[in-house]
């Protein structure tokens, strides 16, 4: 199944938003772009059943937003609660300030932080490193397919991309459909004799492991 992954972009500066949108469109992503937090929340709400962004890029400082009825913290909290499998990068001019970092972490404990003073190019470089990464004998190509390097075979499902992007972290998937896609990806890895294996942690939680000796066992009674 081919499904181009979405990326949520929340940036109050129109010019920067346009640059980011262009960058992701060129990389074959479907950008969900918003200049205000309320618009971003609305995009997430309207795409709730059809789209689950692989990545969200959130500007913490929304001073130029046309509508200030919601905050970047509200968007981060929504992502943390309802789209846990989405990788999140938050950038700010004040990312060094501990109170800003603390607010971001309380809104989204898994958010990655980026210093806006390093410029947009630095942010895009970081995003590209995440989206074009290599794990074992797998590589993401153009952010849209996972390639098994020895055979050059491709796997197109976005949940597979999500697992590679998040490696070595665990990803919690939101539905039976998503977990079925993940298991199919696991079978695909086995069929290709890949050095990367799918590890289940139960409760729709999966991660990729490059080591070959790990065998999951049933959970113990104490949690």
């Amino acid at each position: 199944m081919r499904a181009n992954p979405e990326v949520l972009i929340l940036e109050d500066d129109a010019e920067t938003l346009d640059e980011l949108q262009t960058h992701f469109t060129r990389k074959r992503f479907h950008p969900l772009a918003a200049r205000s937090a309320s618009r971003a929340l609305s995009l997430l709400e309207h795409n709730r059943y059809s789209s689950r962004p692989v990545l969200a890029i959130v500007d913490w400082d929304l001073g130029k937003a046309p509508d200030r009825s919601a905050s970047s913290g509200d968007v981060l909290s929504r992502l943390a609660r309802e789209l846990r499998e989405c990788a999140v990068i938050v950038y700010s001019q004040n990312i060094d300030a501990f109170n800003v970092r603390s607010q971001i972490q309380r809104s989204h404990p898994r958010a990655l932080l980026h210093d806006k003073r390093d410029g947009d190019a630095s942010l895009l470089e970081r995003v590209d490193r995440m989206l074009d990464r290599t794990v074992g004998d797998l590589r993401i190509h153009d952010g849209t397919v996972v390639v098994h390097i020895p055979s050059l075979d491709q796997h197109h499902h976005r949940e597979a991309i999500r697992l590679v992007v998040h490696h070595p972290d665990i990803v919690t998937f939101h539905s039976d459909t998503a977990t079925k896609a993940v298991r199919r990806f696991g079978e695909w890895l086995t069929a290709h004799d890949s050095a990367v294996r799918l590890v289940s942690h139960g409760n729709r939680k999966y991660r990729l492991a490059v080591t070959v000796s790990e065998v999951p066992s049933p959970p113990d009674a104490d949690g």
Partner: peptide, 16 residues
């Protein structure tokens, strides 16, 4: 900027 006053919505409260 910042977070809303609705603390019950904070992401840090999401069970995991």
């Amino acid at each position: 900027m910042g977070v809303s006053d609705d603390r019950s919505m904070l992401g840090v409260l999401a069970p995991d």
